[in-house]
Amino acid sequence: MLSYISGRILQSILVLIGVTIICFIMFQYMGDPALALAGMDATKEQLEETARMLGLDRPLYEQYVRFLWRAVHGDFGISFMTKTPALQLVLKRMPATLELAGTAMIFATLIGGLVGVFAAVKPRFVASRLAMVGTLMRITLPTFFIGILSIYFFAILLGWLPPFGRGDVIGIGIWSTGLLTVSGLKHLILPALTLGMFQLSMSTRVIRGEMMEVLAEDYIRTARAKGLSVLMVTLRHALKNALIPFVTIAGLQVGQLIAFSIVTETVFQWPGMGNLLLMSIGQNDQPVVITYIMVIAFIFVFINLTVDLTYCLLNPRIAYD
């Protein structure tokens, strides 16, 4: 068990180092940071001075080692635009994105699980068939389209929910939350549903598929032959077995929700990390873009590690060594 965990952690670190290398190489070709920092009207001397300050006159490997060394210490440089540390800037936006993604994930998993299980147990019901058609439709429609449609219906036509923004937030330490105010919750509904819809559709279909497979297993018949009710067999014997493969997918989904909330955040003007990223790309604010990529990579790696360990706990057949 211990060797398994340490092995997985080592792998994760290697992945993160890989991401830094790709980041570093990519940004060699994305405009001159000295120019971005010093401004369009800077003189040649000022430009050279800025380049020296940023260490751009040093050999490439030295620049990389310095970049890595600073990154390990949480220093990703200063935003060209706001002149504040890039990491601070990104982390300040993180609560908004995490609350959005978290709500979307809970919604997607709970509803997706319920609908998926129902559709597997009662495949001939009209509701089950409708769910299958509906989820397939959602998978084929792009998120921005769903977002715009939902704004049109629920915010403009019906006027039930606010069309954009995050509403009132309350600060708890470094975390600013919108979950504790009525306005914050109201603002959260549309973006969270829009963001979670795709994952909901995937979860429904995956859980249904897994459940149908498990329900055809011999041990389900054994459980029925014991005298257990269909409900008990479904919950106690089938669901847990069907959830094992789903955990892997759910882990990937959390990562995707956080990383790909960019579209939803843009449509709803949600002040999260994705919104910041788009802005920073537009302004060629390289430190912020790099920081965003690194933070997302870290979250992805962390979630995958958690998933692998959960997998072991759920499935006794996996040996730890």
């Binding site: 297993e217 011999d218 041990y219 018949r221 054994t222 459980a223 032959a225 014997h237 847990k240 077995n241 094992i244 759920l314 499935n315 006794p316 057949r317």
Partner: peptide, 11 residues
Amino acid sequence: FQEPMTSLNPI
């Protein structure tokens, strides 16, 4: 049943 390998819940 016939298949003792698959007739018990694996987890």
